[in-house]
Design a protein around this nucleic acid. Structure first.
Lengths: 267, 267
DNA sequence: TAATGTGAACTCTTTCACAGCA
DNA sequence: TGCTGTGAAAGAGTTCACATTA
């Protein structure tokens, strides 16, 4: 998902797998909690449980960072916190701008976990002149006309997009042109960016749809009737066979039989 | 090489890879946009571009659903919209409760993409009595005392947790006990749930940390030098070696029988 | 003795490349 | 001819199981 850099072939001096990187924040959070309780050391088993992974995976993950544990004992909590923080780049300050101060943008601005861990909300930006100057979560909203200036002055390299989908790509383009190289996108749209720019997306609707898929499957597992799918749109003649094959599948039947026409949805 | 074990039988409808499931919503969104523009058919190449994936992956994904395309032509948009919707379980109605109506919960309640696609906000629930009865996004907030009753009456199987981290597990337990089997967790904490319950998490802080990791790496590629790590916490005696290595600003924690080149953290 | 660190096996995912069909 | 559908190869990620070591 992250925009790739060119694949480094042989000399993997720093080749921490992406899957491992994605778990480091989880370990860090668990370790921070232990640290606050003044726990001095922790075993891979305990830490893994706290982070919600299995211990073999955790040990493998840590092995990419180096040998930071002590056999027969475990890991030193403080030391690991530091090492992971450093690995994640959290020992430095990351100014962040949030673009689009609607309900979501405002909620993000006020989100506590934001300020912690080296992330600092450098600016809130919105296109609505009525918002300009209004403080949100204690930070005055600035107008998007000044976006480029703000990015440049604060040396911002991480941008959060919380605008409507329709303008997200345009905002993204401006952010990138102004020097932002990492984007967290909350708008339900695919962003295209040049090489070297990372995009991660957070999409409520997608998450729900994935849950619905599994939910449906659970429901379909119970013995019972196979509800024949109602009114499918006219299939292309060529797909007849495929359609029939698909019909062999179990339909979810939690409640009344479905029978929706193809859904139509706005972004 | 191949064991005698055969692969999936021709009749699928089951065994759709998780990675594929996670992309179906993306395809669906792109297809819906095409549908609104009354585009009748689309090639794998075009659709892949719109969804931000490559066409081989898209075709492989669709092959798990069945043969819904027409060689030499492409895919019928309406038909695919329907098939994917059905596969994802979006042809039925999914009542959802949101627990924790703070800034984020309120933003989620008002999120448009929520209501669309078969998801319906059945109830907003908050523990604060002062919130009870107050409408948020047009829906009156109900008190958490009534959580079980609400879940049961509306037949809710999907819950969204937007509470503070401290109470998320307790809320989760109550949701699950009341019959919820899919949870979308916005609280920055690991939830433990019994088998059969799906949890997906959305974590702003984690996403930012992942971006910071890559950002740091980009920065490290330039001549600019990151200052020597300030005061690392006292390392456990056993970790001396690792500490010294870290202090040297060299990264090669990984030792290797495989002969790792001495870590080239580009200066 | 207890717990790390890690090759090796295994599973999942992506990509390739082309046969097959409209 | 053009595009889908899919085996096969390649690559990533996970799990196993045990040698290693404090």
């Amino acid at each position: 998902m992250a925009t790739g850099r060119t694949h480094r072939p042989a000399t993997r001096s720093r080749g921490i797998p992406e899957a491992t990187v994605a778990r480091l924040p989880l370990y860090l959070r668990a370790l921070t909690a232990l640290s606050e309780r003044s726990v001095p050391t922790v075993s891979s088993e305990e830490l893994a449980a706290a982070a919600g992974v299995n211990s073999a995976k955790l040990r493998k993950d840590f092995s990419y960072l180096g040998s930071y544990g002590t056999r027969g004992v475990g890991y030193d909590v403080e030391y690991l916190v530091y090492q992971i923080s450093r690995e994640l780049g959290l020992t430095q300050d990351w100014p962040v701008v949030i673009v689009g101060i609607g309900n979501l943008g405002a909620a993000l601005a006020g989100y506590g976990g934001f300020a912690s861990r080296g992330f600092r909300v450098a600016a809130l930006i919105d296109a609505d002149p009525a918002m300009t100057g209004r403080p949100v979560a204690g930070i005055p909203v600035q107008h998007s006309d000044d976006l480029e200036k703000i990015i440049a002055e604060d040396g911002v390299s991480i941008g959060v997009i919380a605008t409507p989908a329709g303008v997200a790509q345009a905002v993204c383009d401006r952010l990138v042109a102004a020097g932002v190289t990492s984007i967290l996108n909350f708008a339900p749209t695919v962003l295209s960016v040049p090489d070297g720019v990372d995009v991660r997306k957070v999409d409520l609707s997608i998450e729900l749809q994935i849950l619905a898929f599994h939910e449906q499957r659970k429901a379909g597992e119970e013995p019972g009737e196979e509800t024949a799918p109602a009114a499918a749109p006219a299939a292309p003649p060529a797909a007849r066979t495929a359609t029939d094959r698909a019909r062999a599948g179990v339909e979810g039947g939690r409640k009344g039989p479905d029978g929706d026409a193809p859904a139509v949805m706005p972004a």
